[in-house]
């Protein structure tokens, strides 16, 4: 049985996470007006339609791309020495101190509560086409999985192979991978909630919602 209280206490002991914002691609960087100590926020609004705080601008092929905060936090470091220079992909630009949000805490605890189906190999993963369209239209929790079901396409070295789910029956409660992103072998792909555990999971959600206070 999962000790939610204990888990929550553990997280409360170190509620911060350091976020490193790197250049998503090459380009000439400029930082605009942010300063160390500034509070920044990620995308907000019911549908995440209000963009997060701009941190830097990356210009490549005459196209300005604004790099925004994806999470709430405080600016810890800005690499101002890079201002106006051409940076390589993956160069560290800004460092944020981020206080864990309810959703993230929930994510951490759920990862312990759910049955995790792991990537068998380092590869890119996609949902099988029919599953994918179902998830896109009505969300992952609309999909019930069962042992032996053809659920994924594993794409590796340009080769694709179907991947069957194995584990308990249940609904897909969480999806941990994104398309076009390599997943290491052993990393979780999905979190499955068996029907008999649904009440436990709901309890976790309620507990986190009530007991975790987000800090500004």
């Amino acid at each position: 049985m999962l000790d939610i209280s204990k888990l929550l206490e553990e997280i409360k002991a170190s509620p911060y996470e350091e976020l490193v914002i790197t250049a998503p691609h090459t380009g000439v960087v400029s930082f605009g007006s942010i300063k160390v100590g500034d509070r920044v926020i990620g995308a907000t609004g019911t549908w995440g339609e209000i963009p997060g705080t701009p941190l830097a601008t990356l210009q490549r092929e005459r196209n300005d791309k604004i790099i925004r905060a994806t999470q709430k936090g405080v600016v810890e470091k800005i690499h101002t020495e890079l201002e106006g220079t051409f940076v390589e992909a993956g160069t560290e630009l800004v460092r944020l101190r981020h206080f864990l949000s309810k959703d993230e805490v929930l994510g951490i605890i759920l990862k312990k509560a759910l049955y995790l189906f792991e990537a068998p190999e380092r590869a890119k993963y996609y949902f099988a086409p029919d599953i994918d369209s179902k998830i896109k239209s009505s969300g992952s929790q609309s999909v019930t999985v069962h042992d032996g079901m053809e659920l994924f396409i594993m794409s590796r070295m340009k080769r694709e192979a179907p991947l069957n789910y194995s584990g308990p029956d249940g609904v897909i409660y969480a999806v941990y991978f994104q398309h076009n992103e390599n997943i290491d072998s052993g990393a979780p792909l999905i979190g499955v909630c068996p029907p008999d555990q649904l009440s436990l999971i709901e309890d976790v959600v309620v507990r986190v919602q009530t007991e975790w206070t987000e800090q500004e």
Partner: peptide, 20 residues
């Protein structure tokens, strides 16, 4: 006629590359 790249508004969700 402009030599520049354009970002697709769905780039983040669909992984579209910048278009010339």
């Amino acid at each position: 006629k402009e030599d520049r790249a354009i970002t697709c508004p769905n780039a983040e969700t669909h992984g579209c590359q910048d278009l010339w």
